[in-house]
């Protein structure tokens, strides 16, 4: 009897937990799904029945957004900005994080503190001086005007993440590699960096998302229409096609797809990176 009651209680608890998780999943996914569904239905149909399923799916909105809305160009611009930014942040963060975690040198704490201070500086507080700086350097209006500040603003979190991860790796691995005859660079490249895959993946996903969705920086520093990335393009696109919900939804869908692809590629490592150090 007691065993039955215990089993029943456990079943209810499991059902409750699952119910709660399903609720949160629905809350998170609902806006995304509605956008996707709207993108794949004629505008008329969406206005009459906003929550209907896109069956059969209509690809016209997506094609129109790509061609009329110039989303192909925006996407390419975003890629041109995002890839060097992500590479720059990952490479510099990994090297700096490794140095801070592994070596004891005078001023180490100060350097780390100064880098972390960057986490507290909002872009808005430096956007105007940075504008003049870029103007002076002759970079304003070029992709570099967004890439270089993007790297600078990505570094504090990147260095923090990588340093924390490298700090957790056993120091005996470093010593074993020294006994094996590795130089510091070889230890970093052949031993430490492969082990830091989860942290690198996490950083790639975070930085890619951040760069992909960056709005203010390109708005200020990239005034040439031909260089607009996705978020800017989306804003101008919305201004032009305010009435066509299907077309706007298609634009938003096109904007989100690369982020989802990047997340899916790095998903497994990303989760390991987030939970690294949680348990020994």
């Amino acid at each position: 009897m007691a065993g039955n009651r215990h089993r029943q209680r456990r079943a209810w608890a499991t059902a409750g937990r699952h119910g709660l998780l399903i609720l949160f999943a629905v809350i998170s996914l609902y806006p995304i799904l509605v956008t996707w569904f709207t993108a794949l239905r004629p505008a008329m149909q969406s206005q009459q029945d906003p929550f209907g399923l896109p069956w059969p799916p209509i690809w016209e909105n997506v094609a129109n957004a790509w061609v009329k809305g110039r989303f192909g160009d925006y996407l390419m611009n975003s890629v041109i900005i995002a890839i060097p930014t992500v590479i720059g942040v990952v490479v510099l963060s990994a090297l700096a994080g490794y140095g801070i975690a592994r070596f004891r040198f005078p001023g180490r704490a100060l350097a780390f503190g100064a880098i972390l201070l960057g986490l507290t500086i909002p872009f808005q507080s430096v956007m105007i001086p940075l504008y003049y700086q870029l103007l002076q350097m002759g970079l304003l209006g070029s992709y570099w005007a967004v890439i270089l500040p993007g790297i600078a603003f990505g570094l504090p979190f990147g260095v923090f993440l990588m340093a924390a991860f490298f700090e957790d790796l056993p120091k005996e691995l470093h010593e074993a590699a020294r006994v094996d005859g590795c130089s510091e660079l070889r230890i970093f490249w052949s031993v430490m960096l492969p082990l830091a895959k989860p942290a690198v993946s996490t950083l790639i996903v975070f930085q890619f998302m951040r760069t992909w969705n960056e709005f203010l920086m390109p708005l200020l520093y990239l005034q040439d229409e031909a260089k607009r990335p996705i978020p800017l393009g989306l804003m101008f696109f919305q201004g032009t096609y305010t009435r066509d919900i299907g077309l706007i939804a298609a634009g938003v869908t096109l904007a989100t797809v690369p982020v989802i692809i990047v997340y899916l590629i790095f998903q497994r490592q990303f989760v390991r990176g987030l939970t690294a150090g949680a348990v020994k």
Binding site: E172, L173, R178
Partner: peptide, 20 residues
Amino acid sequence: AEPAERGIAMVFQSYALYPH
């Protein structure tokens, strides 16, 4: 001298094998 130049090999308590 650097460890690799001493002609030694070391076995660590934690094995220190490269996991990857």
